[in-house]
């Protein structure tokens, strides 16, 4: 392999850091929007009134996840053109699916007898949700958020294809100019970012999950 150390060092220390903030935005903004949408949606769909639809909703989310990321990124381009906005929108939709799925599955997996006991002691449905269902679901919900975050960090690379910039710009130049140095440098940042974000979510999880169900 012809690997030029100088180019690599240059890419690692001078070129790539410039794209770091952009990439981080491509992860954090879609994640934030996705969480804000899919958590409430997941909770609503598991309420008794809507519960019978939840099978279909799950099937829809599952099907959504089978669509290739490149297709999701590309499909908005004809409508919204090049740029940051379409990339954010596509990544949001992509991030949404695992979070919503895991939220629904997590709330469903709370044992029926625990809920019944809570209701039997006179809790209102609202109290059951906030003091039984949600606390017990948090670990699984957080797993969904983690999966989604790691996925978004690497999928955000594709944003470069539709003019969304980010670390993908470095990696795709590496591809176009046959420069493994650029690919490696960009990938290292992506990897570190994925690990750091995953850790951070784990810390948040550790802080909000009650100790006894951790």
């Amino acid at each position: 392999m012809n690997f030029d150390m100088d180019i690599f060092m240059d890419a690692l220390w001078r070129l790539s850091p410039g794209y770091l903030t952009e990439h981080l935005q491509l992860v954090i903004i879609p994640m934030a929007i996705a969480i804000l949408i899919s958590l409430p949606a997941g909770i609503i769909i598991t309420r008794p009134g809507y519960r019978r639809h939840s099978g279909r909703v799950m099937a829809f989310f599952n099907a959504g996840q089978t669509i290739p990321p490149l297709a999701v990124i590309a499909i908005f381009f004809p409508f919204l053109g090049l740029g940051y906005g379409p990339a954010i929108l596509a990544l949001t939709i992509y991030a949404l699916l695992p979070i919503a799925r895991n939220t629904i599955a997590a709330i469903h997996s709370v044992p029926e007898d625990v809920k019944e006991a809570a209701m039997g002691m006179g809790m209102t449905p609202r109290e059951v949700l906030f003091s039984v269902e949600l606390p017990l679901s948090v670990p699984a919900i957080m797993t969904g958020i983690k999966t989604s975050a790691v996925l978004t960090v690497s999928t955000a690379v594709l944003a470069a294809l539709v003019g969304g910039k980010g670390m993908g710009a470095v990696i795709f130049s590496g591809i176009n100019f046959f420069r493994p140095e650029l690919i490696l440098a960009g990938t290292i940042y992506i990897g570190i970012m994925a690990i750091v974000i995953e850790r951070m979510i784990s810390v948040i999880e550790w802080m909000i999950v009650p100790a006894h169900i951790r």
């Binding site: 392999m1 690497s154 999928t155 990696i171 046959f178 493994p180 990938t187 990897g191």
Partner: peptide
């Protein structure tokens, strides 16, 4: 699994 697929493609492409 966490490495973007494009990086893996690009990297192995450079392997003689």
């Amino acid at each position: 699994f966490c490495i973007p697929s494009i990086s893996l493609f690009g990297f192995f492409m450079s392997v003689p």
